[in-house]
Design a protein around this nucleic acid. Structure first.
Lengths: 349, 349
DNA sequence: AGAGGCGGGGCGAACGTTCGCCCGAACGTT
DNA sequence: AACGTTCGGGCGAACGTTCGCCCCGCCTCT
């Protein structure tokens, strides 16, 4: 309350003096430990309130050997793009963390950096208690390091089957299944897939979803329909041009892409070929990047439950830090297909 | 180097024992203070390296009364949008901070929250040494509080003229001047302005830029051409429809918008009215939001030097924290117009 | 009446640093 | 020979908590 005194901050000892007890007793009361007479406790609380006492988190950290800080690093991506989910993910995680008395510390990583350097440093100097990892992939060196060093962490995304660790991930397979399902319902029979190279863990999950949905619908898959490129518009465009160059009977009438950027490229290629999007050529993307609803036509896409992911990850990590074992160590969240005009034939509702 | 011992971390005392000196001497050597014989220093450095000593930042913080942590809060925005610059800004700030041995702590704020609560708490509990503020506006309560409490901070954005504080801002006035300039060069004479309500500090700077450029070009400004709305596509669309409903001679042939979302709305309205974008109706936006280069046609926009802003802000804040006075306390950065097809008449180069 | 139990609270120590003071030896000066 | 300076390094204390132990007095039970 009092904003008067600038310099010297009020400590537990000031409170003790004001309440006429030893400072250790104040600590007990404020932390609700030990047995203290109700009237004494009352006096102490009141003194603390009156003096505007705030515990010094640094001293507490030193004593308890826990900083209540969680490290989060992400790979900043190329300058012409935005991370579509960073904002929401961070908001979610930060909020969940705060509710448990934790805060989130950002730190920079270059993808090709030795994790022992950046992650190790941070934990060895007692900067953070644990980590949130994102953008995981097969054989992620960070995962190996953290497991090896026994540092608590939770990942946003899975890795290879040989590594067991707590994670939350979005079921990309189900997402692509839903997209293909929807295209089939729209009457498409020849549906192509724009994917990422096989080295991408997410890419192969989504690819499996595509294959499953096609099989489920009893539709054959021409090997030519499965094409891979980088996460770039130009690649989506090029790959789709190749698809449209296939002979009449093998030429797909729709594509399901693993990312919105690829899907945007597909839309461009289809338009260039004189096809009416939606009516003659269906396109779906992935991520529901903000802005794609303003494309012409608006792009159908798979939206990840980013908010929930942030919440769950933080909850799991904090449970870990408290020494509890979370009920689930491996969580898979369902994404949701957002249908827009790029994949809908005008005739049908 | 040794990843062997898990539990007990190596402290300064271990190093001292290994080097055969008192632990305070180790501290002196590692911090380069006091005078120590070269051979002894050598011995100490070597022991530290061999044992893999890492200073405990918590203990150091406690003693030095400085956490080397910087707080950053931002207002998470509505779910259907992405903050176009958060990713890059954070990368930049985090990197600059790390170079100086600082880290960045995220914390959540609701816009209508009492700053004394969130900001005050963080600094009173010694969580952070200072703050970075973003999305400032006139009469920002956070600024008042931080000035009042004498907490070091640097803002990304200005406020009213009555508050003096260190900031870095992008010159929105110059940005709009450039946009209007460009439209004039494209042959437009009747140019409208899509703005934000007058309560927005950024909005009025950009509005001034529009007015200045029009005056400079010797063009009259019809009051009907200045329209305000919220940061939404639908508003941009509605406002532009109103503009296009003006009688022949007063109807603008181009609009300069204060944000990409408004500009996208303007593009939609123009297209709905049967106008060919670029050729018959010019549109410019602001922010260079990722993705707008994929619109049809790609949208001309004003790009902010976000990376540089992050760097400068952190540098200033750290200077402040070190007790130095930064050379400049008020920095204005030039934005850059990125010209795309939405504002260019096909005939001209 | 003495033993045992329990509620209430004090006290020393520790967490891992940094800071400032002091002391002894070596050296050079008057 | 006595004195002042400088260098090298030790030592106590402090930063603000929390933890565990101990002690005291009162109540209760045998």
């Amino acid at each position: 309350m009092h904003r008067g005194q600038r310099r010297r901050r009020v400590t537990i000892k000031d409170v003790a003096a004001a309440a006429g007890v030893s400072y250790q007793t104040v600590s007990k009361v404020l932390n609700g430990q030990g047995s203290v007479a109700p009237e004494t406790a009352q006096r102490i609380w009141e003194a603390a309130r009156r003096l505007g006492y705030r515990p010094n988190v640094t001293a507490r950290s030193l004593r308890k050997r826990a900083t209540h800080l969680i490290g989060y690093s992400w790979y900043p991506i190329s300058p012409d793009q935005t991370n579509p989910i960073l904002d929401k993910f961070l908001s979610s995680a930060v909020r969940a963390a705060e509710e448990a008395g934790y805060h989130i510390l950002l730190f920079p990583t270059e993808p090709d950096q030795d994790p022992a350097d950046s992650y190790g440093r941070l934990v060895e100097t007692n900067r953070v208690d644990g980590f949130i990892l994102s953008t995981t992939n097969y054989d992620d060196p960070r995962i190996r390091y953290l497991l090896d060093a026994e540092v608590p962490f939770v990942a946003f995304g899975r890795s290879g089957p040989d590594l067991r660790f707590p994670y939350v991930d979005v079921d990309g397979r189900a997402g692509l299944r839903a997209a293909v399902h929807h295209l089939v319902e729209q009457g498409h029979r020849r549906i192509a897939f724009l994917g990422w190279p096989p080295s991408s863990r997410q890419g192969s999950a989504r690819r499996n979803g595509y294959l499953e949905a096609m099989a489920q619908a009893g539709l054959p898959v021409d090997p030519e329909w499965i094409r891979v490129g980088e996460h770039r518009v130009t690649d989506g465009r090029r790959l789709t041009q190749e698809l449209l160059a296939l002979p009449q009977g093998r030429r797909p009438t729709a594509v399901a892409a693993v990312s919105d950027l690829l899907a945007i490229g597909a839309m461009q290629a289809a338009r260039d070929a004189g096809l009416r999007l939606g009516a003659e050529f269906g396109v779906t993307g992935f991520d529901d990047t903000p802005g794609i609803q303003h494309l012409m036509p608006p792009l159908t896409s798979v939206r990840q439950p980013v908010w929930e992911a942030g919440q769950r990850i933080v909850e799991m990590l904090i449970a870990l830090l408290r020494g509890e074992t979370p009920e689930e160590r491996e969580v898979l969240l369902e994404p949701r297909l957002i249908v827009r005009a790029s994949s809908v034939k005008p005739g049908e509702s």
